[in-house]
């Protein structure tokens, strides 16, 4: 099954990004395709390559990057939400791309299910 995921909260502040990641990983393990993860609202902060958590904590941003690399997951950051919050190409982590809200609508059209994680 083709799955879309929406992440509406930033990393560390809220569990949403962790839940979304663990859901995505489990879906891939079960043979589903995670077609796109769309980061919206404060969720765009998941794409900041300036993120430096303490060494004994999970690295949420790098975890997404690795998922994208290992499983060709399309990580899309909403441009309007990103610009509002200072996320730009110059501080965008690897594996993410910045694009428009149309990418979210497209995920709704193309995917069999869309699951939203937020506050």
């Amino acid at each position: 099954m083709k799955l879309g995921i929406v992440v509406n909260e930033g990393p560390y502040q809220h569990q949403a990004s962790d839940s979304a990641y663990l859901f995505a990983k489990a879906a891939i393990e079960k043979g589903h395709e995670v077609w796109r993860v769309f980061f919206y609202h404060d969720g765009v902060n998941n794409a900041s390559k300036l993120t430096e958590p303490p060494q004994d904590d999970r690295h949420i941003v790098n975890r997404w990057t690795k998922l994208a690399e290992d499983h060709k997951v399309d990580l899309v950051v909403c441009v309007a939400a990103a610009l509002r919050r200072g996320i730009k190409e110059e501080n965008l982590a690897q594996g993410f791309r910045i694009s428009g809200l149309g990418q979210l609508v497209e995920a709704g059209i193309k995917c069999d299910r869309v699951v939203t994680f937020g506050d």
């Binding site: 509406n8 859901f23 299910r113």
Partner: peptide, 20 residues
């Protein structure tokens, strides 16, 4: 359920909604 069970619930339901 674990996360795998979460995935099954999503795929077995016709549609889903997160009550945010």
């Amino acid at each position: 359920v674990d996360y795998g069970g979460f995935v099954d619930l999503v795929s077995n339901s016709k549609n889903c909604q997160s009550w945010l």
